[in-house]
């Protein structure tokens, strides 16, 4: 039984040293390995570089977003301030406007005008 397995093991060893589709000596194999490792390193470094650049871009966009959000809030605040009746009244006074005197209001009486119905219905329990 032992004698019969020897040729099989020998063939396997040969295949391990010389794959059937790729025949290369030790020097060639070393050069190829170095080249492959170098290539992988270059790829890795290139990808890392791109990632770093992308990260910086994302950081820049985050900062820009924060700045814009702040500007947005400031503008909303400014609009709110200028829409406030306190501000409008102060501006009107500064422009020389004065509140209307109820006695100067002219009321036009239209005979037989039907009053506008109120939509405000009484609420019952």
């Amino acid at each position: 039984m032992r004698a019969s397995t020897k040729p099989i093991l020998a063939a396997r060893r040969r295949r391990q040293l010389h794959p059937f589709f790729f025949r290369m000596g030790p020097v060639g194999l070393s050069i190829c390995s170095v080249l492959l490792i170098s290539l992988m390193a270059v790829l890795y470094l290139s990808q890392l570089g791109q990632a770093v650049t992308t990260n910086q871009e994302i950081q820049r966009l985050h900062r820009q977003q924060a700045t814009l959000a702040r500007e947005d809030q400031d503008l909303a605040q400014q609009i709110a301030q200028e829409q406030s009746p306190v501000y409008i009244a102060a501006r009107a006074a500064a422009m020389g406007l004065v509140p209307a005197d109820p006695k100067t209001i002219i009321v036009l009486v239209i005979p037989h005008l039907k009053p506008v119905p109120s939509d405000d219905q009484r609420l019952q329990p």
Partner: peptide
């Protein structure tokens, strides 16, 4: 819909 209280940074 006028703002009475808001936030600023």
């Amino acid at each position: 819909g006028r703002i009475l209280a808001s936030n600023i940074i």
